[in-house]
Design a protein around this nucleic acid. Structure first.
Lengths: 236, 236
DNA sequence: AAGTGGTCTAGACCACTTG
DNA sequence: AAGTGGTCTAGACCACTTG
């Protein structure tokens, strides 16, 4: 099955909302109506409505119906930016050094995160990013070798992994975890900081349509790097 | 039906994870095993596993099985959540202590952030939030006294500032800055950590329709608290 | 080959809101 | 009374991973 039926229905509803065809508070077709319209079972139509409700596009009310939500509270806090663009947008000079680019076996934790087989190698890259000559971020990235078989042939001194991956496997989804940590000795030396200085660590998992593309571990000195976010809650 | 069957199964799995009975990477029973064990259909058992996967507690892999996730991804960056709800959603006990609630003059930086006049007082509250009796977050909040004149009359031992502000001045917009810092001595004592432990600091500015409502500085021990986020990139 | 999760069906009974 | 969403069943076929 190429495209699941519930995905087709979701897309149909999204299209109507995004085009403005169904404005806020519009009643959308019921489970039974969609089931008939798309010639699927009610459970399949239901799944489409349910997933869009979880994503915040629809609101459901037992007995009353399903409606287009008041606001798309979109605009994500952590946009996934290319660090080179970010530095240059501040008018600063950007540079990066590729430290490692190899095939590497992974442990169980990473195997699960990457949805790859344990003990089988994946691709690994390690880069240090500089802003005006100062190290600002250590990027360690594990890449699903099935989805991006050409990864090892790149030169990440001239293009960032983010740029390359965006081109060959466009992002569809991402998760982040952010914590404050103490970096180990080697990382402190790379980043040019004392071991007592706290670091911000972002673990990012990225998906393309085919599945998990990469797991990136981004470590930045707490003093030099700041994450920002902006949320706009749309009015009715 | 008092409690749905899938909820009972979810609770059973959560209990095993939270008690440490099923540590990270543990394989959890398959859909068929759960269906037999709880005498339900496979679809019902599936729903329990699916919802826990969406919540980040489990990871699934077709053909391989379902496993306990590496981290319980904690608070969402996309939404501004009430910390009390967040703790309780993890099935943990929430408590908070109001340390300060007063009127206080502000410096120039805060005056600009709050869009208030310099050297004129604003309202200030300081709270310590606990999860299962452990301090997890110090909340320092400056509130625009013009927009929320009743702030000082509240008792923030029973309702969080976030809940109160949401009621009287509904959020329309927010910005965040996240950094890793070393907390000062007083803050370390409050949070029960050593001065060498890094902290995650979130600075949040919130708006209502009338203007800037508050500036909050949220400090959490890096080891105990993790921010998580989930982005879904909509297709064209 | 056996087990796993992913999708899907065609029914069922229920609680709830609406005209 | 008719329609809606919420829960649930007992099947089915498939793609995938593992021994």
């Amino acid at each position: 099955m190429a495209i699941p039926k519930f995905t087709v229905i979701k897309q149909h509803i999204c299209d109507n909302i995004e085009s403005g065809n169904w404005p806020q508070h519009t009643k959308v077709p019921s489970e039974n109506e969609l089931a008939e319209q798309f010639a699927v079972s009610r459970m399949t139509a239901r799944r489409a409505l349910q997933e869009l409700t979880e994503q915040g596009l629809l609101v459901r009310s037992q007995g009353a119906g399903t409606f287009v939500a008041t606001f798309k509270s979109q605009s994500s806090l952590l946009e996934i930016k290319n660090i080179a663009d970010e530095v240059e947008s501040r008018g600063h000079e950007y540079r990066s050094v590729q430290l490692v680019l190899e095939s590497r076996p992974i442990n169980e934790e990473l195997a699960i995160l990457l949805n790859c087989e344990r003990d089988k190698p994946v691709f690994y890259s390690e880069l240090l990013h500089f802003e005006n000559g100062e190290p600002i971020q250590l990027e360690q990235r594990f890449v699903n070798s099935k989805l991006v078989p050409t990864y090892l042939k790149q030169n990440f001194n001239t293009v960032t992994p983010h740029e390359y991956l965006s081109a060959v496997a466009p992002l569809t989804e991402a998760t982040h975890e952010i914590e404050a940590v103490v970096a180990d000795k080697v990382q402190c030396e790379l980043l040019g900081i004392e071991p007592s200085q706290p670091c911000l660590r972002v673990k990012r998992r990225t998906w393309a349509s085919q599945g998990v593309v990469s797991v990136a571990i981004l470590t930045s000195p707490g003093q030099k790097y700041r994450l920002g976010g902006h949320i706009i809650i749309e009015k009715e």
